[in-house]
């Protein structure tokens, strides 16, 4: 063999030599590989229960196959359209506010007073570090119909107090805007870094040509950070359908479920509370697939239109 295929043999020994010299690097990598294998790849393989009837005693891999039964049941159920609609509206609403941190970053970038800029950044980053439980707890306290600050103001204007957290028509606004409160400042970091890379010569030249501050922002600053904006937009789309599920779960109650029921909370309820593992896994898989399709589509469009893409 060695005589017949000397080239391959030579390659083998090279690999062996490299392994011999660098084996410790593979040991370094081992715990991470084991972790990702057990907690990411086995669950991926376990998605097969979406096409099975899961029995605890038979396990994920031994339960009998049932094909697309769970998917059909989900698509035909009366709540399917409601869940899909709620999930899409909530996420689209959130995506609509995508420009806000960009505007705030552009604004911070124009401040001439460095100390004020720093002060504003430190304060507006702070809510990012508050847990969802505390944020929802604050909402409960502020929006309480009897004792909440917001309803004191509402009464001041001579109106009836509004039961914000138990009204379906208020759920989306409260969810999305409290999210903005938490993430607006933090969301500016990457844009501010990109803005630091704007070529000052462009501004000098534009000044000579008589461009106003506002014009210079529109024609110099925004085009400079456009690649960053596009990448972050694609990443946001990649998380479409998935944002804030843990917060929705905390804000949800029987009275606002008409708008707060989203696919992920439904997976949690049917799967972990009711024990319908296979059915819930099928719904979860449906959602993941939508996500991947969205991500790939947006990435392709971005690559065609702007030459900026994740891959």
């Amino acid at each position: 063999m060695a005589v017949e295929q000397p080239v391959k043999h030579k390659g083998d020994s090279k690999i062996l030599k490299s392994l011999q010299r660098n084996w410790q690097l593979y040991i370094f990598l081992l715990p991470a590989v084991v972790y990702f294998f057990i907690f990411h790849y086995i669950p991926m393989y376990g998605i097969q229960i979406a096409f099975k009837d899961y029995f605890a005693n038979l396990g994920m891999f031994g339960s009998p196959w049932v094909g697309f039964e769970h998917f059909e049941r989900f698509f035909e159920s009366y709540y399917f359209w409601r869940l899909l609609k709620n999930t899409i509206i909530l996420n689209a609403y959130n995506l609509l506010l995508f420009p806000l941190p960009i505007i705030f970053a552009l604004s911070l970038n124009e401040l001439r007073n460095g100390a004020f800029k720093k002060w504003s950044q430190t304060l507006t980053y702070a809510p990012h570090f508050i847990s969802v439980v505390v944020v929802v707890g604050m909402l409960v306290a502020f929006l309480d119909p009897n004792t909440g600050l917001v309803n004191h103001v509402v009464r001041l204007f001579g109106m009836e107090p509004i039961p914000f957290l138990t009204s379906p028509e208020w759920f989306r606004h409260i969810f999305v805007w409290s999210g903005q409160w938490q993430s607006l400042g933090w969301g500016t970091i990457i844009y501010l870094a990109a803005l630091a890379g704007v070529n000052p010569e462009l501004h000098e030249a534009a000044k000579v040509d008589g461009a106003t501050r506002f014009q210079r922002i529109i024609h110099i600053n925004i085009p400079t950070i456009l690649p960053t904006i596009i990448i972050l937009f694609i990443l946001n789309i990649g998380n479409f359908m998935q944002i804030g599920f843990e917060k929705v779960l905390l804000m949800q109650n029987n009275l606002n479920s008409e708008t707060s029921d989203i696919i992920q909370t439904f997976v949690y309820e049917t799967g972990l509370l009711e024990g319908q593992y296979s059915f819930a896994a099928a719904i979860g898989l449906f959602e993941s697939l939508i996500n991947i399709v969205l991500l790939i589509t947006v990435n392709q469009i971005a690559r065609k239109v702007s030459n900026n893409s994740l891959w």
């Binding site: 490299s18 392994l19 690097l25 990598l29 086995i42 669950p43 991926m44 229960i49 949690y268 979860g284």
Partner: peptide
């Protein structure tokens, strides 16, 4: 010097794109 670095990287990066989801992870 790490051989098959691309393979290892993809092995890890792929988990960003796709995951088993709540129920299979819970069962594991």
């Amino acid at each position: 010097e790490l051989m098959a670095k691309k393979v290892f990287l993809w092995f890890i990066l792929f988990t960003m794109l796709f995951n088993g989801g709540l129920i299979p992870t819970y069962l594991v």
